[in-house]
Amino acid sequence: MQFNDMRDKIAAGQGFIAALDQSGGSTPKALKGYGVEEDAYSGDEEMFGLIHQMRSRIITSPCFSGEKVIGAILFEKTMDGEVDGRPTPTALTERGIVPFIKIDKGLEDERDGVQLMKPIPGLDELLTRAKGLGVFGTKERSVINQANEAGISAVVGQQFEVAIQVLRHGLVPIIEPEVNIKSADRGASDVILREEILRHLDRLPEGEQVMLKLSIPAKAGTFEPLTNHPRVLRVVALSGGFSRSEACEQLAQNPGMIASFSRALLSDLRHGQSDEEFDKTLGTAIDEIHAASVA
Rank of each mutant, 00 (worst) to 15 (best):
A11C: 08
L167D: 06
A295T: 09
I97S: 11
L251M: 11
I152W: 12
A237L: 08
L167F: 07
G15A: 03
P255D: 05
L266E: 10
V143Y: 04
G35L: 12
I101G: 03
G221D: 05
E37N: 14
L226I: 10
G240R: 01
A72I: 01
H229L: 14
S243R: 03
L251R: 00
R270D: 12
V294T: 12
M6Y: 08
I10P: 00
R234E: 13
L193K: 00
V36H: 09
G71T: 04
A40L: 04
D109Q: 12
P121R: 03
V232C: 04
A188I: 09
E161S: 07
S245Q: 15
M6F: 15
A150D: 15
E37A: 13
R199W: 15
K280R: 14
I70Y: 05
E246D: 13
E76K: 09
T90K: 14
Q2P: 08
V155F: 05
Q53S: 10
Y34F: 15
G240Y: 10
G241Q: 01
I70E: 02
A285S: 11
H290G: 06
Q158R: 12
I216R: 00
R186E: 10
V179M: 02
I258N: 04
E288F: 10
F16N: 00
P173L: 04
S26D: 12
L204Q: 07
R234D: 11
G272S: 11
I103C: 04
G43R: 11
A285K: 02
E178T: 02
G170S: 06
I174Q: 06
V83H: 03
I10L: 15
V135C: 03
M6Q: 06
L107F: 15
L238R: 02
Q209W: 01
P62T: 10
R231W: 04
I70W: 08
V143T: 03
G187N: 12
H169N: 11
L133G: 02
V162S: 08
K32V: 05
E110A: 03
F160I: 00
D275T: 04
P119N: 05
I181F: 13
I73Y: 06
G256A: 10
V191L: 12
Q159E: 14
I164K: 12
V98W: 01
R244N: 12
E38L: 08
K102M: 14
N145Q: 13
F278R: 00
G151S: 07
K9I: 13
G207C: 07
G151Q: 00
Q158G: 09
D44F: 15
V232G: 00
S293I: 11
D275K: 05
S189N: 01
N254I: 07
G256W: 13
S61L: 08
